[in-house]
Design a protein around this nucleic acid. Structure first.
Lengths: 329, 329
DNA sequence: CTGAAAGCGCTTACAG
DNA sequence: CTGAAAGCGCTTACAG
């Protein structure tokens, strides 16, 4: 592949001049520029971003470490991040942690070696060693969706508490009194927030929340299925199950269907995170919707602010309850 | 951030020696190695992959340009690609073309400037100028899912013809005689293959295929919705609609539901590409399933073969028909 | 407006 | 077993 030297000799100028036309430096005579452009064209020259990065100390690349790309929420987030990043002239490398701390560490480490200009993380858990590395690396960092408490890092996330409260009220008004919830990993801020908002709202409604109605999950489908199985095996099963993410809701549906039960007649179902398919499930599923695109855009803007030396604020977006038929009507 | 020089001076060796321990070169005395390792630890040194890439002429990075990341098929493919790539020691940068040739060109060009070691493309359309660039760049290249005909590039894809034929037989046996299909972009090999297999099978069943039963789509949901609207507005609407990808099937469901019609009583629906949600839609959707993980793994293996100087074969995987209730029973 | 030269952080023959 | 030196392909003060 042709290098800047090849272009220079073909255009009969120095590499400095070629570099100048590459970077739109004004101090180049029009005819010189034309000669260089010509040589570039003829050679099919393509600047080497690796060499440029080494020299300029910037890669124009952002890293995004996400807990599970297969989760439609994160897919959409990744897409929004990529769109906004491109608008600012950055590429993004996505690392999929698959909810495994070791994979998360692998990706963070890999991204740091690649000298990305900034990092977006939705942490799987608060493994402190990686964080120390991160802090030490001085790489601009923004948390999105999930975060690690007590760290001086901007956080862009959705506050679902209000919507969860609305959901509980909705369930109460429908006459449901035995409400169960499938939690996410305890190490996860979003998981905790959703659970605690739910428990609080249930308490405020004067309902009790027996511990066996709180299922442990890990935000993946299989755990939603297992938790649902335990609920349904109870002598007095719950009337409604609230899954704190969409994959666990999918698992819950799998289990309910496998037992030949119907939603919402036999058991109601609601989920955190709305996705297009929830409109078309049998029945359509009541869900709490995040503004995922906006979340992604704001996250990138915060990170770009940091990279370019400006201060970056944390951003909190609201969620909204979308009532469909899966809890009764 | 500490550089190899800092490590060298702290360990009181030359940078060459540090480089040797970094690369597990055997010719380093154990105590020297220990001193270097120590210095690395103390400084929190992290090798600069940019500098290494410039020197070694390899980035250990693969590019994946996909027509639409939000399509669950491509999400799953991307995940499988990333997994297999990591197993071979490569990272992957994903470019989302969003079915737009100009975005596809942008990503290919960007990846080439970044000097990725190899490129995986599921081409949006056969825009020849980018292909010329690609061929000229000598970058190892493999097509996945879709491809450009008449090019000496390995192709890893699913042959859906057999499964499409089975689908048509299934529909015929159910008593359906008026079959409609929503096509993908004509510039797309998969789109063409699915359509032509469908038309052929319909002909073999002795059925006729009026042109108004062939809808034009672009593999995205909105086009599936529009095509379905046109079908349903026909004086004699089809009895079954076959969407040649899952997003267009989603759009078709949207339209059917919006008109208050039922599946399969009023109109049947089948889709190419199976996804977890099809089990839970109302009713569950009959679909043609690809072995997406295997597709991703094989693609990466083919590309790695090319990168490492071995020959790479094209791979054709079979698809299978998964019968559910959306076409009747 | 243009060029010569230094340097970004590595790796790797070559010499010892 | 170790080091000095060249070089990967760029950018950018500096000088003219």
């Amino acid at each position: 592949m042709a290098s800047i030297k090849d272009v220079a000799s073909r255009a009969e100028v120095s590499v400095a001049t070629v570099s100048r036309v590459l970077n739109d430096h004004p101090a180049v005579r029009p005819d010189t520029r034309a000669r260089v452009l010509n040589a570039i064209e003829e050679l099919g020259y393509r600047p080497n971003a690796v060499a440029r990065s080494l020299r300029t100390h910037q890669t124009r690349t952002l890293g995004l470490v996400v807990s599970d790309v297969m989760n439609p929420f994160f897919t959409e987030l990744a897409r929004a991040v990529e769109d906004e990043a491109r608008a600012h002239g950055y590429s993004v490398i996505i690392g999929n942690a698959d909810e495994q701390p070791s994979l998360q560490a692998h990706h963070i480490s890999n991204l740091l070696e690649r000298r990305i200009d900034g990092l977006l993380v939705s942490p799987t858990e608060d493994d402190s060693s990686i964080l120390t590395d991160l802090a030490a690396s001085k790489t601009p960092l923004v948390f999105v969706d999930r975060w690690i408490p007590h760290l001086d890092v901007p956080v862009v996330h959705t506050d679902g508490r209000q919507a969860v409260r609305q959901l509980v009220r909705h369930l109460y008004e429908l006459g449901h009194r035995r409400l169960a919830v499938i939690a996410g990993p305890e190490t996860t801020t979003t998981g905790n927030e959703r659970i605690s908002a739910f428990l609080e709202a249930v308490g405020d409604s004067g309902l009790s929340m027996p511990p066996e109605y709180v299922g442990k999950g890990d935000f993946q489908a299989a755990s939603g299925q297992a938790a649902t199985a335990r609920f349904l095996d109870l002598p007095k099963p719950p009337q409604v199950i609230f899954a704190t993410d969409n994959l666990m809701a999918l698992g819950a549906m799998d289990e309910i269907r496998a037992r030949g039960l119907r939603v919402p007649e036999d058991v109601g179902l609601a989920a955190f995170d709305d996705i297009p398919w929830f409109l078309h499930t049998d029945p359509p599923i009541t869900a709490i919707a995040q503004r995922t695109d906006e979340l992604g855009h704001r996250t990138v803007r915060a990170l770009v602010d940091l990279i370019e030396g400006r201060a970056a604020d944390s951003v909190t977006l609201p969620a909204s309850l979308v009532i469909r038929r899966s809890c009764g009507e």
